[in-house]
Simulated scan of single mutants.
Amino acid sequence: MDVTYEEFVDSRLAALARYAVILTGDRETAQDLVQETMVRVQLNWRKVSRADLPERYVKRMMANLYVDWQRGPWWRRVRLRGDADETVPVPGDIADGTADRDLLWGVLAGLPRQQRAALVLRYYEDLPDAEIAEALGCSVGTARGYISRALSTLRARLTSRALVTEGMR
């Protein structure tokens, strides 16, 4: 039985929105990403619905669009937020857990889009290297490199922030 676009959206939109938030790290950007992706999905529904796994096809479209936004206009890259240093928790603050999450989101947001997308595809979508490479349109070695560099960057930045935080206590 063929699924209509409307049925697909009704059943998968919430999951796609969660995926977009993880991918972008920002609810507003995620909403824009989902909206633009779903317009493209609707325009190409015949092709999407014929895919073996339509949801995976849509997620690939979303990841590609997110990576392509890096090449877009400068105003898409401007963030109206404080510096990441403002997220360092105050000693004894009861909101340490929230501050830690904010710190992690801030560090993730600082990664290049390809690296962030590779991490999301690996650890959120649990895809193997070959499928990550296919989704990002690169070689398997390049996909592994994105993941490796992203994890190294995360370790370094989180370790340096932890040392700063420890020094404050």
Rank of each mutant, 00 (worst) to 15 (best):
D2T: 15
T4I: 11
E6K: 13
F8W: 09
D10H: 02
L13S: 11
A15N: 05
A17D: 01
Y19N: 05
T24E: 01
G25E: 02
R27Q: 11
A30C: 14
V34K: 07
V39Q: 07
V39R: 12
Q42V: 00
V48A: 01
P54S: 03
R56L: 04
Y57T: 10
R60C: 03
R60L: 05
R60T: 14
A63T: 15
A63W: 03
V67A: 14
R71M: 03
P73R: 12
P73Q: 12
W75V: 11
R81L: 10
D83I: 00
D85F: 00
E86L: 09
V88T: 04
P89M: 05
V90E: 06
P91D: 09
D93L: 06
D93V: 05
A99K: 10
D100T: 08
R101L: 09
L103N: 04
L104V: 15
W105R: 12
W105D: 13
V107T: 11
A109S: 14
G110R: 14
L111A: 14
P112E: 10
R113W: 01
R113Y: 12
R116T: 08
R116W: 00
A118D: 02
V120R: 02
L121Q: 06
R122Q: 05
Y124I: 08
Y124T: 10
Y124Q: 13
E125R: 13
D129R: 00
I132Y: 04
V140C: 05
G141N: 08
R144A: 05
R144F: 00
S148F: 10
L151C: 07
L151T: 14
R155A: 01
E166C: 04
R169I: 11
R169H: 06
R169D: 08
